[in-house]
Design a protein around this nucleic acid. Structure first.
Length: 703
DNA sequence: TCGAACGTTCTTTTT
DNA sequence: GAACGTTCGA
């Protein structure tokens, strides 16, 4: 047995993390310290030394994409092994797998379907309608947040009933109704997948024992982003006989808004003894200046585990900071830089543009398009979240699970086939009196006139026997043709029509990957859960494309050249986070994540003015810019200052400058008009509103 | 029953 | 500015 190729290329700490199977390990892995590599090598080491078989290893990753990468890298390392048995995936997909296996034991319908946040909201809005609750007083999104939070704390509706006031009582009653809806429609939301699994393992000793004996090794990546329910699941799955490895970096914890609890990195030692802590502090990715700057920024955070990243990669290339006039100038600047880098031999896919929020991608997409630079946007409205795709998915969901009233509601008149509110209300009444699902009610409801034929056709379409098709892609194609979906879209003369049709063709294509299943029922269920759980839908991507994504989506990736854009207060850090120090620290970690994606070159940019919510806004540079070490920064353009002569003094300002006026108090400079002695300056005062002032008499001073 | 036109509200990140 | 919901006329 030759293990040299598995351990030779590792540094001392990495090697210990790979070969130590005597203790549980907490690996504090800094950015670019070879974290994934260590996990991959450890799995290979476990298998090749005979410590466990593939199916006795459980490796939890943060995204499904990471899981796929893990698998293929292990395969590269051990080319002659079949690693199909390896359990990898997100907490959600692993729990989904467990629930499919044990659906009977947990009382779930075998064809239960997974729903996303959007579907959850629909259910809550439906409940609002049933109870005539207005969405102002009980905002669906808030209620949804409450329900998810309760579930993450393992609290069922019955544990939450609270009638201390009207709001709390209504909220807990909606939770109860929501639970009932999910059960009746055989629907399972994201958190429910995990909650159900923890309940199953808690209450069913036989199942618990089965997995305790099966899994000899558990590895958890991105451990800093586990929430309390996921942590509980880990505790339930683990025993003294196993080895569990948690890998994480507290400085890269950027999901607390989703319930992630960094403190799990502190409690791990207590809950999973005996624990050996290993620090991976050598960074193999970034140059010294980039790393020093990133370290400097993150050092402004108060609550950190002690860890110092270092690198051997010397460079005299400083970080570059660009102050753009506005968001268009920012995009133009980046295009120019990319072009010049390209002409010196850089590949487009080595460049990444990273931004705080998805909406920011638009300007870059437009500019890159104009400049004929190919690009690819990751995330955003993801493939399976697009309306036209969800419409077809609704048909599929209803076929898989005839109890799904939400799928029925979405598909019955999409595309419009003459079944309106009247008909739908009749069906719902019928369903209510007979306590059957809507689809069953649609078969028995008496309908007359035009709607009758349309309804019959619809019902027969979604009642078609699955077996008739044999292959999933044929079924999808059948739905598309018999609903005349494409013809309908073509009549809509919206600019997105073409891409919608493309998407539908792509969906049929995606279904083809499931044609190999023996049973179409199984293929359908797998396809549908893939559509919800695994948003990494890789449409074939040409290599040479600039990469665009949010900072969150960039976690775990690296690029030779990174553009970190929109570094403006209110945008990044986002204005929703300003009031709360903890949240500002999370924004700072996000900034740290962004900076440490860069290998060689890091551009930072901000715009002095920006169109936001349809309005021109004057922006202040982000506080993170002030936290950078100035000796490592090249200023490519300093904000343009203008000098005006007032009665007594000369006054120098830039747009967005905070100023003070003797009478009107403090304000901010919005605009300036050059016109000799009549030059004017526009200022928005805090208490007096916006005013134009003659420069000569303005008598402003810097606030 | 349908779609155009209007008004309203909300704008963070994702499994 | 966009996405959503509502209203109104055909």
């Amino acid at each position: 047995m030759d293990i040299t190729h598995i351990i030779n290329s590792l540094n001392e700490e990495q090697r210990e993390a790979v070969v130590n199977t005597n203790e549980n390990l907490l690996i504090l892995a800094g950015a670019g310290s070879g974290k994934t590599r260590t996990i991959v090598h450890r799995i290979a080491y476990i298998v090749i030394t005979g410590s466990a078989h593939w199916n006795q290893i459980l490796a939890v990753t943060f995204t499904n994409k990471a899981a796929n990468e893990l698998k293929s890298r292990v395969a590269q390392l051990l080319p002659n092994q079949r690693n199909a048995g390896l359990w990898t995936g997100t907490f959600h997909s692993i729990c989904h797998k467990l629930l499919r296996i044990h659906s009977q034991e947990v009382g779930l319908d075998g064809n239960f379907q997974v729903i996303d946040t959007d579907d959850q909201l629909r259910i809550i809005k439906r409940i609002h309608k049933e109870r005539s609750l207005d969405e102002q007083s009980w905002p669906p999104k808030k209620i949804l947040g409450y329900i998810n939070q309760m579930k993450e704390r393992s609290l069922r509706a019955k544990d939450c009933y609270d009638d201390s006031n009207l709001f709390l009582r209504t909220q807990s009653e909606i939770y109860e109704a929501y639970e009932a809806h999910c059960i009746a429609n055989h629907l399972v939301d994201f958190t429910e997948l995990i909650l159900k699994c923890t309940e199953m393992l808690e209450s069913n000793e036989a199942i618990r024992w089965r997995y305790h004996t099966q899994f000899k090794h558990i590895l958890v990546d991105e451990f800093q982003d586990t929430n309390r329910l996921q942590y509980k699941l880990l505790k339930l799955l683990s025993t003294d006989a196993q080895r569990i490895v948690a890998v994480g970096d507290d400085d890269q914890s950027i999901y607390s808004w989703r319930g992630a609890v960094v403190d799990h990195m502190f409690s791990f030692e207590k809950d999973f003894p005996p624990v050996k802590t290993i620090r991976l502090e050598q960074n193999y990715r970034s140059t010294q200046p980039i790393l020093t700057a990133a370290n400097q920024v993150i050092s402004h955070n108060s609550k950190r585990l002690d860890k110092t990243l270092w690198t051997e990669i010397e460079s005299d290339e400083k970080l570059k900071l660009y102050a753009a006039y506005n968001e268009l100038d920012e995009a133009q600047f980046i295009c120019d830089q990319i072009k010049s880098l390209q002409s010196s031999g850089l590949k487009l896919d080595d460049c990444a543009i990273l931004y705080r929020s998805n909406a920011q991608s638009r300007v870059f997409e437009e500019k890159l398009g104009q400049e004929q630079l190919p690009y690819r946007v990751y995330g955003g409205l993801r493939f399976f979240e697009r309306a036209e795709i969800k419409d077809i998915i609704a048909y599929l969901r209803l076929i898989a699970n005839p109890s799904d009233n939400y799928a029925f509601e979405r598909s019955i008149n999409q595309p419009p086939r003459g079944i309106g509110k009247m008909t739908f209300d009749k069906i719902r009444q019928e369903a209510l009196t007979n306590t059957t699902p809507l689809l069953a009610a649609a078969r028995t409801t008496q309908i007359t006139g035009k709607a009758q034929a349309a309804l019959e056709q619809y019902v027969s379409l979604v009642s078609d026997s699955l077996a008739d098709f044999g292959q999933l892609s044929l079924l999808v194609e059948h739905i598309v043709t018999s609903t005349k979906m494409i013809a309908y879209l073509s009549t809509q003369r919206s600019p997105q029509t073409e891409s919608k049709i493309e998407n539908i063709k792509e969906l049929i294509n995606a279904a083809k990957y499931y044609d190999k299943y023996d049973s179409i029922q199984e293929a359908l269920n797998e396809f549908l859960s893939h559509a919800v759980l695994d948003q990494t839908h890789e449409s074939e991507h040409a290599a040479q494309q600039v990469q665009l994504m949010t900072l969150h989506a960039a976690k775990g990736l690296e690029f030779p050249v990174v553009f970190l854009v929109g570094l403006e207060d209110d945008l990044f850090p986002h204005k929703m986070t300003h009031a709360d120090d903890m949240q500002i620290e999370e924004e700072r970690r996000l900034c740290y994540v962004g900076m440490t994606r860069a290998e060689k070159t890091l551009f930072l940019s901000y715009a002095e003015t920006r169109r936001l919510y349809g309005q021109e806004m004057y922006q202040r540079p982000s506080r993170f810019i002030r936290e950078l070490p100035s000796d490592l920064i090249d200023n490519l353009r300093v904000a343009k200052t203008t000098r005006i002569t007032q009665q007594k003094t000369t006054f120098e300002f830039k747009l967005g400058q905070n100023v003070k006026h003797e009478k009107f108090g403090e304000g901010v400079v919005l605009n300036y008009e050059e016109d000799g002695d009549n030059s004017r300056i526009q200022v928005r005062f805090i208490s007096e509103g916006t005013k134009w002032l003659l420069c000569a008499y303005a008598n402003l001073s810097i606030a």
